[in-house]
Design a protein around this nucleic acid. Sequence first.
DNA 1: CTCGACTCCTGCTGGC
DNA 2: TGCCAGCAGGAGTCGA
Length: 298
Amino acid sequence: MPELPEVETVMRGLAAVLEGRRITAASISRPDLRWPFPPGLAARLSGARVLGFRRRGKYMLMRLEGGESVLIHLGMSGRMVARRVDEAPRPRMAPQGAASDARGHDNPPDAHEHMVIETEEGWRIGFCDPRRFGCVDLVPTGREEEHRLLAGMGPEPLGPDFTAAALSAALAGRLTPIKAALLDQKVVAGLGNIYVCEALYRARISPRRLAASVAGARAARLVPEVKAVLAESIAAGGSSLRDYVRADGEIGAFQERFDVYDREGQPCPRCPGAPACSGIARLVQSGRSTFYCPRTQR
DNA sequence: CTCGACTCCTGCTGGC
DNA sequence: TGCCAGCAGGAGTCGA
Protein backbone atom coordinates (compact mmCIF):
# COMPACT_ATOMS: atom_id res chain seq x y z
CA MET A 1 0.00 0.00 0.00
CA PRO A 2 2.14 2.78 -1.26
CA GLU A 3 2.26 5.82 0.94
CA LEU A 4 4.59 8.76 0.55
CA PRO A 5 7.90 6.92 1.20
CA GLU A 6 6.97 4.13 -1.19
CA VAL A 7 5.92 6.57 -3.91
CA GLU A 8 9.15 8.50 -3.41
CA THR A 9 11.15 5.28 -3.69
CA VAL A 10 9.35 4.17 -6.83
CA MET A 11 9.76 7.61 -8.35
CA ARG A 12 13.50 7.62 -7.73
CA GLY A 13 13.74 4.23 -9.37
CA LEU A 14 11.84 5.45 -12.39
CA ALA A 15 13.90 8.62 -12.62
CA ALA A 16 17.11 6.61 -12.70
CA VAL A 17 15.89 4.73 -15.75
CA LEU A 18 13.78 7.34 -17.53
CA GLU A 19 15.10 10.82 -16.85
CA GLY A 20 16.48 12.38 -20.00
CA ARG A 21 15.50 9.32 -22.04
CA ARG A 22 13.15 9.08 -24.95
CA ILE A 23 10.10 6.84 -24.86
CA THR A 24 10.09 4.74 -28.00
CA ALA A 25 6.89 2.81 -27.43
CA ALA A 26 3.92 2.88 -25.10
CA SER A 27 0.87 0.71 -24.83
CA ILE A 28 -2.29 0.51 -22.75
CA SER A 29 -3.97 -2.83 -22.27
CA ARG A 30 -7.39 -1.78 -21.00
CA PRO A 31 -9.54 1.35 -21.14
CA ASP A 32 -9.29 2.34 -17.50
CA LEU A 33 -7.96 1.85 -14.03
CA ARG A 34 -9.91 3.77 -11.45
CA TRP A 35 -10.81 6.22 -14.20
CA PRO A 36 -10.40 6.03 -17.97
CA PHE A 37 -6.92 6.56 -19.31
CA PRO A 38 -6.75 9.97 -21.03
CA PRO A 39 -7.49 9.87 -24.76
CA GLY A 40 -4.46 9.19 -26.87
CA LEU A 41 -2.18 8.53 -23.90
CA ALA A 42 -0.07 5.89 -25.62
CA ALA A 43 0.41 8.03 -28.70
CA ARG A 44 1.35 11.06 -26.65
CA LEU A 45 3.89 9.08 -24.67
CA SER A 46 5.46 7.49 -27.72
CA GLY A 47 8.39 9.51 -28.97
CA ALA A 48 8.42 11.95 -26.06
CA ARG A 49 11.50 12.60 -23.99
CA VAL A 50 11.17 12.41 -20.22
CA LEU A 51 12.45 15.62 -18.70
CA GLY A 52 12.05 14.89 -15.00
CA PHE A 53 10.01 13.66 -12.09
CA ARG A 54 8.48 15.10 -9.01
CA ARG A 55 6.08 13.94 -6.34
CA ARG A 56 3.05 15.54 -4.77
CA GLY A 57 1.64 13.58 -1.87
CA LYS A 58 1.15 10.07 -3.18
CA TYR A 59 1.11 11.22 -6.80
CA MET A 60 4.04 11.04 -9.19
CA LEU A 61 4.42 13.56 -11.97
CA MET A 62 6.51 12.66 -15.00
CA ARG A 63 7.28 15.73 -17.07
CA LEU A 64 7.45 15.16 -20.81
CA GLU A 65 8.87 17.38 -23.50
CA GLY A 66 6.03 19.06 -25.34
CA GLY A 67 4.37 20.65 -22.33
CA GLU A 68 2.53 17.76 -20.72
CA SER A 69 3.10 15.84 -17.52
CA VAL A 70 1.88 12.37 -16.69
CA LEU A 71 0.13 12.12 -13.34
CA ILE A 72 0.36 8.67 -11.78
CA HIS A 73 -1.17 7.28 -8.60
CA LEU A 74 -0.27 3.76 -7.53
CA GLY A 75 -3.51 3.21 -5.64
CA MET A 76 -3.22 0.37 -3.21
CA SER A 77 -1.59 -2.30 -5.25
CA GLY A 78 0.32 -0.41 -7.92
CA ARG A 79 3.84 -1.48 -8.82
CA MET A 80 6.34 -0.32 -11.39
CA VAL A 81 8.41 -3.14 -12.78
CA ALA A 82 11.49 -2.25 -14.78
CA ARG A 83 13.41 -4.72 -16.86
CA ARG A 84 15.37 -4.94 -20.07
CA VAL A 85 13.23 -5.34 -23.18
CA ASP A 86 14.97 -8.58 -24.10
CA GLU A 87 14.82 -10.00 -20.58
CA ALA A 88 12.26 -12.58 -19.53
CA PRO A 89 9.71 -11.42 -16.97
CA ARG A 90 10.97 -12.18 -13.52
CA PRO A 91 8.72 -14.30 -11.33
CA ARG A 92 6.59 -12.40 -8.91
CA MET A 93 8.39 -11.92 -5.68
CA ALA A 94 6.76 -13.84 -2.90
CA PRO A 95 7.22 -12.14 0.48
CA GLN A 96 7.84 -15.40 2.34
CA GLY A 97 10.05 -17.00 -0.27
CA ALA A 98 9.28 -19.03 -3.35
CA ALA A 99 7.01 -21.61 -1.78
CA SER A 100 3.82 -20.35 -3.36
CA ASP A 101 5.32 -20.43 -6.84
CA ALA A 102 5.56 -24.17 -6.82
CA ARG A 103 1.84 -24.67 -6.65
CA GLY A 104 1.37 -23.35 -10.13
CA HIS A 105 -1.71 -21.30 -9.44
CA ASP A 106 0.05 -17.96 -9.55
CA ASN A 107 -0.72 -15.38 -12.14
CA PRO A 108 1.90 -14.84 -14.81
CA PRO A 109 4.31 -12.03 -13.93
CA ASP A 110 2.72 -9.67 -16.45
CA ALA A 111 -0.84 -10.16 -15.26
CA HIS A 112 -2.48 -6.84 -14.49
CA GLU A 113 0.20 -4.93 -16.35
CA HIS A 114 -1.98 -2.15 -17.66
CA MET A 115 0.53 0.30 -19.11
CA VAL A 116 3.94 -0.38 -20.60
CA ILE A 117 6.53 2.06 -21.85
CA GLU A 118 9.88 1.35 -23.46
CA THR A 119 12.94 3.53 -23.92
CA GLU A 120 15.54 3.78 -26.64
CA GLU A 121 18.07 2.28 -24.23
CA GLY A 122 16.03 -0.91 -24.06
CA TRP A 123 14.25 -0.44 -20.76
CA ARG A 124 10.71 -1.67 -20.38
CA ILE A 125 8.60 -0.23 -17.55
CA GLY A 126 5.32 -1.92 -16.68
CA PHE A 127 2.68 -0.41 -14.43
CA CYS A 128 0.95 -3.33 -12.67
CA ASP A 129 -2.07 -2.66 -10.52
CA PRO A 130 -4.17 -5.73 -9.73
CA ARG A 131 -6.77 -3.88 -7.72
CA ARG A 132 -6.95 -1.04 -10.22
CA PHE A 133 -7.33 1.67 -7.60
CA GLY A 134 -4.52 3.57 -9.30
CA CYS A 135 -4.87 6.14 -12.03
CA VAL A 136 -2.98 7.85 -14.84
CA ASP A 137 -3.79 11.23 -16.34
CA LEU A 138 -2.21 13.98 -18.38
CA VAL A 139 -1.93 17.55 -17.13
CA PRO A 140 -0.34 20.64 -18.66
CA THR A 141 3.12 21.15 -17.18
CA GLY A 142 3.10 24.12 -14.84
CA ARG A 143 -0.57 23.74 -14.05
CA GLU A 144 -0.38 20.47 -12.13
CA GLU A 145 -1.71 21.98 -8.94
CA GLU A 146 -4.93 22.88 -10.76
CA HIS A 147 -5.65 19.24 -11.54
CA ARG A 148 -8.78 18.10 -9.76
CA LEU A 149 -6.84 15.41 -7.90
CA LEU A 150 -4.15 17.79 -6.65
CA ALA A 151 -6.18 20.93 -6.04
CA GLY A 152 -6.81 21.48 -2.36
CA MET A 153 -4.17 19.03 -1.23
CA GLY A 154 -2.44 19.92 2.02
CA PRO A 155 1.25 20.72 2.52
CA GLU A 156 4.04 18.27 1.82
CA PRO A 157 4.90 16.76 5.20
CA LEU A 158 8.63 16.92 4.49
CA GLY A 159 8.47 20.49 3.23
CA PRO A 160 8.88 23.76 5.12
CA ASP A 161 5.15 24.52 5.02
CA PHE A 162 4.26 21.60 7.28
CA THR A 163 4.69 23.24 10.66
CA ALA A 164 2.99 22.87 14.01
CA ALA A 165 1.17 26.13 13.38
CA ALA A 166 -0.03 24.99 9.97
CA LEU A 167 -1.17 21.63 11.33
CA SER A 168 -3.01 23.25 14.22
CA ALA A 169 -4.79 25.56 11.82
CA ALA A 170 -5.79 22.68 9.56
CA LEU A 171 -7.16 20.71 12.49
CA ALA A 172 -8.98 23.59 14.17
CA GLY A 173 -12.66 22.85 14.57
CA ARG A 174 -12.42 19.31 13.33
CA LEU A 175 -14.41 16.94 15.46
CA THR A 176 -13.07 13.77 13.91
CA PRO A 177 -10.40 11.62 15.58
CA ILE A 178 -6.83 12.73 14.84
CA LYS A 179 -6.25 9.37 13.14
CA ALA A 180 -8.92 10.11 10.54
CA ALA A 181 -7.86 13.73 10.12
CA LEU A 182 -4.26 12.79 9.31
CA LEU A 183 -5.49 10.42 6.62
CA ASP A 184 -7.24 13.37 4.98
CA GLN A 185 -4.93 14.51 2.19
CA LYS A 186 -6.25 18.06 2.55
CA VAL A 187 -4.70 18.24 6.02
CA VAL A 188 -1.32 16.89 5.01
CA ALA A 189 -0.39 15.16 1.76
CA GLY A 190 0.95 11.64 1.54
CA LEU A 191 0.18 9.94 4.82
CA GLY A 192 -1.63 6.61 4.86
CA ASN A 193 -2.69 4.17 7.51
CA ILE A 194 0.77 2.86 8.34
CA TYR A 195 2.63 6.12 8.84
CA VAL A 196 -0.24 7.77 10.66
CA CYS A 197 -0.16 4.94 13.21
CA GLU A 198 3.60 5.15 13.51
CA ALA A 199 3.73 8.94 13.85
CA LEU A 200 0.97 9.05 16.48
CA TYR A 201 2.76 6.38 18.45
CA ARG A 202 6.04 8.26 18.37
CA ALA A 203 4.30 11.48 19.38
CA ARG A 204 2.41 9.68 22.19
CA ILE A 205 -0.91 10.94 20.92
CA SER A 206 -3.98 8.73 21.10
CA PRO A 207 -5.48 7.96 17.70
CA ARG A 208 -8.89 8.61 19.26
CA ARG A 209 -8.04 12.11 20.38
CA LEU A 210 -10.19 14.85 18.90
CA ALA A 211 -8.32 16.37 15.98
CA ALA A 212 -9.06 19.91 17.13
CA SER A 213 -7.27 19.21 20.40
CA VAL A 214 -4.01 18.49 18.62
CA ALA A 215 -2.60 21.98 18.84
CA GLY A 216 0.10 23.71 20.76
CA ALA A 217 2.55 21.32 22.38
CA ARG A 218 0.88 18.23 20.89
CA ALA A 219 1.09 19.59 17.35
CA ALA A 220 4.68 20.58 18.07
CA ARG A 221 5.40 16.98 19.07
CA LEU A 222 3.56 15.42 16.15
CA VAL A 223 5.01 17.37 13.25
CA PRO A 224 8.66 16.36 13.79
CA GLU A 225 7.63 12.73 14.31
CA VAL A 226 5.73 12.70 11.03
CA LYS A 227 8.79 14.08 9.27
CA ALA A 228 11.12 11.65 11.02
CA VAL A 229 9.18 8.48 10.31
CA LEU A 230 8.77 9.41 6.64
CA ALA A 231 12.41 10.35 6.24
CA GLU A 232 13.59 7.15 7.90
CA SER A 233 11.36 5.06 5.69
CA ILE A 234 12.56 6.77 2.53
CA ALA A 235 16.14 6.19 3.64
CA ALA A 236 15.33 2.49 4.05
CA GLY A 237 13.78 2.27 0.60
CA GLY A 238 10.19 2.30 1.79
CA SER A 239 8.31 -0.54 3.27
CA SER A 240 7.13 -3.54 1.37
CA LEU A 241 3.92 -5.20 2.40
CA ARG A 242 2.35 -7.98 0.39
CA ASP A 243 2.26 -6.91 -3.23
CA TYR A 244 4.22 -3.69 -3.19
CA VAL A 245 7.61 -3.81 -4.89
CA ARG A 246 10.05 -1.09 -5.79
CA ALA A 247 10.77 -0.04 -9.35
CA ASP A 248 13.97 -2.05 -9.39
CA GLY A 249 12.27 -5.19 -8.12
CA GLU A 250 13.93 -5.06 -4.72
CA ILE A 251 11.74 -4.89 -1.68
CA GLY A 252 12.01 -2.08 0.85
CA ALA A 253 13.05 -2.77 4.39
CA PHE A 254 11.22 -0.31 6.56
CA GLN A 255 8.41 -2.66 7.57
CA GLU A 256 10.93 -4.40 9.81
CA ARG A 257 11.05 -1.21 11.84
CA PHE A 258 7.38 -0.63 12.49
CA ASP A 259 6.76 0.03 16.16
CA VAL A 260 3.03 -0.59 16.12
CA TYR A 261 1.61 -1.23 12.66
CA ASP A 262 0.30 -4.79 12.31
CA ARG A 263 1.78 -5.69 15.69
CA GLU A 264 -1.36 -6.28 17.70
CA GLY A 265 -0.64 -8.13 20.92
CA GLN A 266 3.11 -7.73 20.67
CA PRO A 267 5.04 -5.89 23.36
CA CYS A 268 5.12 -2.14 23.06
CA PRO A 269 8.72 -1.15 22.27
CA ARG A 270 8.42 1.82 24.59
CA CYS A 271 7.31 0.05 27.73
CA PRO A 272 9.04 -3.32 27.84
CA GLY A 273 7.99 -5.22 30.89
CA ALA A 274 5.76 -2.48 32.20
CA PRO A 275 2.99 -4.29 34.08
CA ALA A 276 0.44 -1.64 33.09
CA CYS A 277 1.16 -2.10 29.39
CA SER A 278 -0.69 -4.94 27.74
CA GLY A 279 1.08 -4.47 24.43
CA ILE A 280 0.06 -3.05 21.12
CA ALA A 281 -3.69 -2.75 20.73
CA ARG A 282 -5.82 -2.61 17.62
CA LEU A 283 -9.00 -0.69 17.08
CA VAL A 284 -11.08 0.07 14.01
CA GLN A 285 -11.65 3.69 13.05
CA SER A 286 -13.72 4.55 9.99
CA GLY A 287 -13.38 0.96 8.91
CA ARG A 288 -9.60 0.84 9.12
CA SER A 289 -7.26 -0.77 11.59
CA THR A 290 -5.43 1.47 14.01
CA PHE A 291 -2.50 0.14 16.03
CA TYR A 292 -1.37 1.95 19.16
CA CYS A 293 -0.15 1.73 22.73
CA PRO A 294 -3.06 2.52 25.08
CA ARG A 295 -0.68 3.22 27.97
CA THR A 296 1.54 5.88 26.45
CA GLN A 297 -0.66 7.43 23.79
CA ARG A 298 -3.01 9.99 25.27
C1' DC B 1 -19.65 22.49 6.25
C1' DT B 2 -18.35 18.21 8.32
C1' DC B 3 -18.25 13.53 8.98
C1' DG B 4 -18.93 8.58 8.37
C1' DA B 5 -20.54 4.90 5.41
C1' DC B 6 -20.08 3.00 1.15
C1' DT B 7 -17.78 1.68 -3.04
C1' DC B 8 -14.36 0.15 -6.30
C1' DC B 9 -10.96 -4.30 -6.96
C1' DT B 10 -8.07 -8.63 -6.44
C1' DG B 11 -4.80 -11.30 -3.66
C1' DC B 12 -3.69 -13.18 0.53
C1' DT B 13 -4.79 -15.26 5.00
C1' DG B 14 -6.90 -18.07 8.18
C1' DG B 15 -10.41 -21.00 9.77
C1' DC B 16 -12.87 -24.97 9.03
C1' DT C 1 -5.31 -30.60 2.14
C1' DG C 2 -8.57 -27.49 -0.18
C1' DC C 3 -11.97 -24.24 -0.21
C1' DC C 4 -13.86 -19.81 0.48
C1' DA C 5 -15.31 -15.86 3.42
C1' DG C 6 -13.28 -12.03 5.09
C1' DC C 7 -9.92 -8.67 5.23
C1' DA C 8 -6.64 -5.27 3.35
C1' DG C 9 -7.05 -0.07 2.22
C1' DG C 10 -6.66 5.17 -0.99
C1' DA C 11 -9.80 8.22 -1.85
C1' DG C 12 -13.94 9.87 -4.36
C1' DT C 13 -18.84 10.13 -3.70
C1' DC C 14 -22.97 10.53 -1.33
C1' DG C 15 -26.27 11.02 2.31
C1' DA C 16 -27.19 12.50 7.01
